[in-house]
Design a protein around this nucleic acid. Structure first.
Lengths: 158, 158
DNA sequence: TATTGTTATACTCTATAACTATA
DNA sequence: TATAGTTATAGAGTATAACAATA
């Protein structure tokens, strides 16, 4: 990870993008996602796999489609992630109702979960280090408001 | 764009990810990026191309590497974007100092810029509709604080 | 028929390594 | 040698369409 640590835009250059929700969101997302990759990459996990394990651990026996709905992913995209985690012995797939498959963490997965939880905690602590609890909460509330608006966005509206 | 408009996580499911900076940032980013795609896709532009045109228009004659530094992109990734915009007659590449290339918007690019500016304005207005000016500014400040922390993130630190 | 899961595929964004060209 | 730009390539994340299996 080699990001320019300062806010950029050389002397005398205009910065028409700065200050807009879209741009600032992207600017923050990139290094944050990179930090997550670095954190979970230590355990040879992708960020999405870490999310998945953590969610399934908290919802043992949930189905794949429930996970997709909860995480806002497409079921098709979970397939390779789950396959990989199962192959590595971190989670199990058991037959559920109908075609459904119940997902659960193995003992080995629980050990890994310890690393993941610690990773999330480190990330949370360091990324939020410059914010008060109130500032952080206000930001999260704002992000959710924006998320909701973006989910309803229709570019054809007047 | 078909996103679940509500906050998800079915009845009785735990949501261990919610409330964390990383996760909320990702959750908001995805639909926001999709909204941008939808907005600029009307003009057959990618989001990154819209960023690029807008920045160059505000900094006529800037070099490719200056753009890369300002936008936080890798020079290599700008190549196909710039090539495409030049091919479509939206921007021009003129020889600059040394190997440098000076980028500028063409007349046709300026016309397109009108669409882009309008698009950014629509996005900004609609995505930020639920926030007061203060809330929005506080969120942007928080995002920059987090961005800075993430840029310095070192997963090997104790 | 509706839901669940899978396959195949494509596109965007980001990243790195290795290269060329110019001062 | 340092800076600017390019090529090639890889990987993560997302999306859709088309399909199979089960109630």
């Amino acid at each position: 990870m080699k990001f320019t640590p300062v806010r950029l835009v050389e002397e005398g250059m205009a910065d028409p993008l700065s200050g807009s929700i879209c741009y600032e969101l992207r600017r923050a997302s990139v290094p944050v996602m990179a930090a997550m990759s670095a954190e979970f990459g230590q355990w040879n996990l992708k960020t999405s796999e870490a999310y998945l394990l953590r969610f399934i651990a908290a919802n043992q026996g949930c189905t794949q489609s429930a996970v997709a709905r909860a995480l806002g992913s497409k079921p098709a995209n979970l397939v390779p992630l789950i396959a990989r985690l199962e192959r590595d012995g971190l989670l199990e797939r058991m037959p559920g109702e109908g075609r459904a498959v119940a997902l659960s963490i193995t003992d080995r997965g629980m050990t890994m979960l310890g690393n993941i939880e610690a990773g999330f905690q480190r990330l949370e602590g360091r990324l939020g280090a410059g914010l008060t609890a109130d500032q952080k909460q206000a930001m999260i509330d704002a992000l959710r408001t924006i998320c909701r608006a973006a989910c309803h966005y229709d570019s054809r509206e007047p």
